[in-house]
Computed example of a mutant assay.
Amino acid sequence: MILWLISPVLGNTLRYIILALVLTTLTAYAVDLYSPSCRLARLEDAIKAAKDILTRAENCSRDYLELMDMADCLIHVEISTSNIRIQLLDASGLAKWSLKIMERINECTKKVEGINTSVLRIMEGEHQYQLKKSSQEKREVIDAITLPPTRHVQERAFRVRRRLAPSPAAISALPESEM
């Protein structure tokens, strides 16, 4: 496809020079994109995003212990990231591209993604709980207004009225001016 794009260029030499420049640029971009330092920077950005999500999720009181567990796991990932950064600073040249460092970066990235997913799931569960609770409260108000009282409700109201009503002895003890 690249050859087809540069085919209008006159002269074979110029054509191959352009092809070499394009391929060199794409290779340099790919090497930079997948370099350990670039991937580590993306991992650090993901950790910052996970911290922000955890901060927003602090009001999810139902799953507070699980959130604290996720925060602890994120701290361990930060420690691992710091160790990787130290290894990259100590390594030179091609040693930075070692398979061990790349695997550790991948492992930390997967852990952060898992933490993000778990925290977002907890937040969504809390949101659903609040919506269901609100809907139930509104349904109870609507039912209380529109539905006729059931026998159970009527009996309870009668017992409450009877408990609040004065006894016959209390009524007879009242002065006649208050009756």
Rank of each mutant, 00 (worst) to 15 (best):
Y16R: 07
L147E: 12
K48L: 08
S172Q: 10
M1L: 09
L65F: 08
C60P: 03
I171W: 02
A165Y: 09
L14V: 09
H152Y: 10
C108K: 03
S172Y: 04
D63G: 01
A95V: 03
K132M: 07
D143N: 11
D63R: 14
G93W: 05
E44W: 02
N116K: 07
I122A: 07
I79E: 14
P175N: 06
S92M: 08
R156A: 06
V77R: 12
Y129M: 09
L26I: 04
L120W: 04
A50P: 09
D52P: 00
C108Q: 14
I17S: 09
G11V: 00
L40A: 07
R163Y: 07
T24C: 10
S61M: 06
I105P: 11
I47G: 05
A50I: 01
L147D: 08
G114H: 12
V141W: 11
R163F: 08
H127C: 12
E140R: 15
K133R: 09
A28L: 13
C73W: 14
L33A: 08
I53M: 15
R161D: 02
M70H: 00
V9I: 14
T81W: 03
A49R: 11
T55F: 11
E140S: 05
N83C: 01
Y64P: 01
R151P: 04
Y129H: 13
I53A: 04
A28Q: 13
E44C: 07
I18R: 03
D32W: 14
V31L: 15
I171Q: 07
S118F: 05
K110Y: 06
T150R: 00
E176C: 08
E178S: 09
S167T: 15
M123S: 15
R15Y: 05
K111Q: 14
I84M: 13
L40V: 10
D90C: 02
P166T: 08
I53H: 09
G11I: 00
P166V: 01
R121K: 09
E124L: 15
S98Y: 00
A71D: 07
P149S: 00
L164R: 12
T150N: 06
I84Q: 08
E103A: 12
S172T: 08
A30E: 13
E44G: 08
Q136M: 07
T81L: 01
S167M: 10
S167G: 10
Q87L: 03
I75E: 13
N59S: 15
S98K: 05
A95W: 08
P8Q: 08
A49T: 05
Y34G: 10
R139D: 08
S177M: 04
A165R: 02
K132R: 11
A50S: 15
Y29R: 09
K111S: 15
C60G: 11
L74F: 06
A170N: 06
M179P: 03
G93F: 03
L120N: 10
I75A: 14
A41Q: 11
Q130K: 11
P149K: 14
R163T: 03
R121N: 12
D32S: 07
T27N: 09
A173H: 10
A173N: 13
I86S: 13
S118Y: 10
A169G: 00
E137F: 06
R104S: 15
V153D: 05
C60Y: 01
V141Y: 04
D32P: 01
S172H: 01
S172G: 03
A91G: 11
R139I: 09
A28F: 09
V160W: 04
L5F: 05
I79L: 13
